[in-house]
Amino acid sequence: MLRHKFNEALNPAAKDIEIKKLAPLFWQQQHHSHIPADHEFLIELIETKDGHHLYMYPFEGRLVHEVMSALVAFRIAKIQPISFSIAMNDYGFELLSDQPIAITKNNLKQILSADNLTADIAHSINAAEMAGRKFRDIAVIAGLVMKNYAGKFKTDKNLQSSSGIIFRIFEQYDPKNLLMRQAYDEVFYHQLEEPRLAAALQRIQKSKIIIKHATGFTPLSVPIKVDSLRQSLSSEELETKIKKMQTESQKTK
């Protein structure tokens, strides 16, 4: 539907009042980057003082993007050691890194390929620590973390902990814990919709891929950029990451 409307937006004779109202934005998008038509797939590479941004616009809905972004991040991270901060919304997703992202027309086919999908998804779920967030709900329902409602007198102060700590402990010391397995299963089966993801990747493979370099944020990228609910994925060594942040903090001092 969205893809269809975008197609229409390119047509000056569009009748919808919404499209007419949004014309200036569409014009700006077209001017700075590109408006993807039905058979096209738009990738924007933007460099700002924050770092290097990679935007992809598959228009597949948030749930699919959540997995697809982790998958793309994981496949890029296999090529070079790199850390990403990932954000997504209903029409696209962003990978943000402090280093240039090595993406070219040649390796894109592999990064967006539908081969080896199940294994790569499983790896990217682990790498992006998606199960940890799912575990939060499970831990509360299972009574692993105490939730006190307002006004309730606290009696179990010694039992305070967070689902994050318990998840970390389970991962390290009790990897077969059923509640933790449940978190992984929930991410995999409820959220993943693997057939939809495979279909989306196949559609992307068939479309014409357009890579645009922009100097500032485009109308399509801004709403994703401001999304604060992010996940992260990294293939860098912990110590290299700390050293980097150490030098950065010394610079600002």
Binding site: S85, S97, D98, I242, M245, E248
Partner: peptide
Amino acid sequence: LMQGKARQAMRL
């Protein structure tokens, strides 16, 4: 809490 470029953060 360490914060780096490109919205990276770590707590250690």
